[in-house]
Design a binder for these strands. Structure first.
Lengths: 251, 251
DNA sequence: TAGTGGTCTAGACCACTCG
DNA sequence: GAGTGGTCTAGACCACTAC
């Protein structure tokens, strides 16, 4: 049942260093100790230290350059993968009260785009769900999600007023491991306007997201539309790590 | 002058594997050979193979899970850091004709936000530049950039019709290494509307970006506003690598 | 020239998946 | 139980920075 695996040492070390940066032990613009010094201090090999630092590097907590010690960057805002996959967890991490209700839901045949994104055959049976998400009671986002058949069965079995679908899925052993997000802008259609209580054609920030499990199998394909001013997305990238692209609109 | 350092083996290996995935040697949803097999085939140690695979992992090219071989994911759209830092390079990578012109430019004292973002003292002298960017002659984006003094001197020395500022800076030895991007939505003000040839209060996709050099020193702080439908941003993230955050709007 | 991060090796053990 | 990826070690050499 439980997850009894010990946390890797490099993750513990990364967490410790992250906390030290946050608490000001290493100040912004300052330098970290050398890898060798960290290895001795924490009684691990240099390889383990480097694994920990690679994590912080990808998060934008520190830079690195051959020849000089690592530089502490400004405190970035990076969230765990879990907080990104789950509206509920995101809201809680903000200290806000998340709400969610299923507005409509139906089994239907996947259209061409959905089938392609979920790697299903065209016309495969999928569960389509329309949800309204609120923050502190205020409508913030409209979510239209499509689930492939086996996952859909689980979702359908959840109570319709379940606040967190993600947590419901996890309870059934579904593991989310990878996500691709595409961010652009769209205008509110009649349904959006009604649900979000905004004018027709009001601008909305659109996030299209495909989430997969560790085997690469798509678990959900979702289009979320946020009211203007309610959300922003932040990305860190660098010469060493890039997972960001700018693309021509739609296409 | 030239950059004579050899490419690291793991980067060569990553490039080779990337090419093989792209060319269909390993098909989508298929499995990669084991790390051990790759090590033998390419005559490197397993550690080097793992470094290469870590790159592909961060890019979303392959997944990984203990116990089974790596799975090839759908071909992701990831761009080099250079293509993200430079409008010109991005446009070229699309096969479109980039254009850019300085609309206005002035030395002035940094305001509170600019000073904070560039890590300068409040009131420090900065170069502010307003540019209009076009794609195939069509106005696409308005860019308002602030440079700290030394970088500003270089920018000011470039010809005002220089298409690529980034390349101009690189020619003077400025290296861009890290960037933070915040994406949200805003409305066109009078200046935006005039330059982009769109209605007042038309929705625009806003990217605020701070780019730093390898020592962590901010090199530019920019607010770019794209016309609706001209651009989208794509991000890949995973349990292993997260560099993405969703934040409350503005705040 | 000393110190530091980048690359690479060879080997070990473990946790997990799957037949 | 065999195969595979995840973690960790100990050591080596190199490229680059800074003094």
């Amino acid at each position: 049942m439980a997850n009894s695996q010990r946390t890797a040492r490099y993750r513990e070390l990364a967490a410790a260093l992250r906390a030290e940066v946050r608490s000001g032990v290493y100040s912004e613009g300052g330098r970290l100790p050398s890898e060798e010094a960290l290895a001795v201090a924490h009684d691990v090999s240099r390889g383990t230290v480097r694994q920990a630092l690679a994590l912080l590097r990808a998060e934008g907590v520190v830079t690195s350059r051959r020849g000089t010690r690592r530089v502490v960057l400004e405190q970035p805002r990076v969230q765990s993968f879990a907080a990104l996959s789950s509206f509920t967890r995101w809201a809680r991490s903000l200290g806000e009260e998340p709400g969610g209700a299923v507005v409509a839901s139906q089994w239907r045949a996947a259209d061409a785009v959905e089938a392609e994104r979920l790697r299903l055959a065209a016309g495969a049976r999928v569960l389509w769900v329309l949800r309204l998400r609120t923050l502190g009671g205020e409508p913030v986002m409209v979510e239209r999600t499509v689930y492939p058949e086996p996952v859909g069965e689980l979702v359908a079995s959840l109570p319709p007023d379940a606040v967190s679908v993600t947590e419901g899925l996890e309870a059934h052993g579904v593991v989310l491991a990878d996500a691709d997000h595409t961010l652009d802008l769209t205008l509110a259609d009649a349904e959006d306007a009604r649900l979000l209580d905004c004018p027709l054609a009001a601008p909305l920030l659109r996030e299209r997201r495909r989430t997969s499990d560790p085997t690469g199998l798509p678990v959900e394909w979702s289009e979320d539309r946020y009211r203007a001013g309610t959300v922003a997305f932040t990305v860190h990238n660098s010469l060493a790590t890039t997972a960001l692209a700018r693309t021509r609109g739609d296409a």
